[in-house]
Amino acid sequence: MLEVVNTTTIVTELGLDPAVDRHAEFAAELRTGLARVEEKLQEVLRSPGHPELTEAATHLVRAGGKRLRPVMALAGAAFGDGRGDPISAAALVELIHVATLYHDDVMDEAPMRHGVTSANSLWGNRKAVLIGDYVLACAARVGAGLGDYALRSQAQTFGRLVRGQFLETTGPFEDCGRHAPYEHHIQVMADKSASLIALAGRLGAQVSGADERTIETLGRYGELIGVAFQISDDVLDISASTTDLGKSAGTDLREGIVTLPMLHALDDEGPGAGRLREIIGHGPVSDPMIRQEALGLLRESAGVVRALAEAHGYAAKARDLALSLPDRPARALLVGLSAFVVDRGE
């Protein structure tokens, strides 16, 4: 996983050439900015006089993570004129993301998140839902300080996040045609994952005074990168170990969620695909032994390869958009990020 607060990793993973002075300077600024975001997250989530709430609300923040959304916000801010408060913008999008993780873990009954025990396992589902709500309230407070654009964008994005979760839970309607499952899943990824990454780039640029074209381009870039990133995540849920993931492998199978690599695998012919249809067709795969069988069949199928090919397609479009932005070090980072999000799934 990407440790974004490490300058060396920023340079090697995200395409910033250390031999170029302005790249090295930007990498150092990014590291400083991310450290300030971490401080801001702890500050905003602190509930004076209520240590248990503070501990629970900061539990997943302290566990770490890729911090992809703050990176996007700070990269977006680098295309502005230096005004505004990009640290708060970066903290805002990460707070929304963290809140969704608390809620997701309740719905998924997940035992782990970011390599630590999930909040619902520690404090129970009811408290975990309330903790997620509290984090959302903290995000709203930060957004209120960033003006009307931030509040409107935050509300629109939260609506998409909820819609994506709802669509994922209900599944595609059976009478929508043969290709409906694919279209349905792309919509889920766009709403549930890409929308917040797009918000990060747009909001970072907007609060820092970037022009409208740049703000729009960063939003479109974030939508594409978000879908590529989620496809990569779906692949990792199949191919990676629980240790590498920091959460339980095969979560999608356990919850009965059919992802893009699964859809491609189910379209194959042969006994492996037939057995997968038999397993997945019955809904959530709760039996650990059957789940391991399904993971093995998925790893042997062409589904993973086809899904990764689609991820590369989305990432290539994102890269082209990044190259249309002004020539600044942040552009090189976005170009590098378009490769990183798909390479991690291979």
Score class of each variant (00 low, 15 high):
Asp81Lys: 12
Pro326Val: 12
Glu55Val: 02
Gly65Glu: 10
Glu25Trp: 07
Leu68Asn: 04
Gly313Met: 07
Glu39Val: 10
Leu130Pro: 01
Glu38Met: 06
Pro284His: 00
Leu45Gln: 01
Leu224Cys: 10
Ala200Met: 14
Ser301Ala: 05
Val61His: 03
Gly256Leu: 02
Arg46Ile: 03
Asp287Cys: 00
Leu199His: 03
Leu323Ala: 06
Glu43Pro: 11
Gly177Met: 02
Ala302Pro: 03
Thr117Ala: 13
Glu43Lys: 11
Thr259Phe: 08
Ala294His: 13
Ala205Leu: 10
Glu293Pro: 12
Gly164Asp: 06
Leu53Trp: 06
Leu34Asn: 09
Leu68Phe: 13
Phe229Asn: 06
Tyr314Ile: 06
Glu168Ile: 04
Pro18Gly: 05
Val207Ala: 05
Ala56Cys: 08
Pro70Ser: 08
Ile257Ser: 15
Gly270His: 13
Ala75Lys: 05
Glu223Tyr: 08
Ala35Gln: 12
Glu223Ser: 07
Ser324Val: 00
Val20Asp: 10
Ser241Asp: 01
Val142Gln: 02
Glu52Phe: 05
Gly124Pro: 05
Ala315Val: 13
Glu43Thr: 15
Ile87Thr: 13
Cys176Gly: 15
Ala210Tyr: 07
Met72His: 11
His114Gln: 13
Ser286Gln: 02
Ile280Ala: 02
Leu16Met: 06
Gln42Asp: 13
Leu74Tyr: 00
Glu255Arg: 04
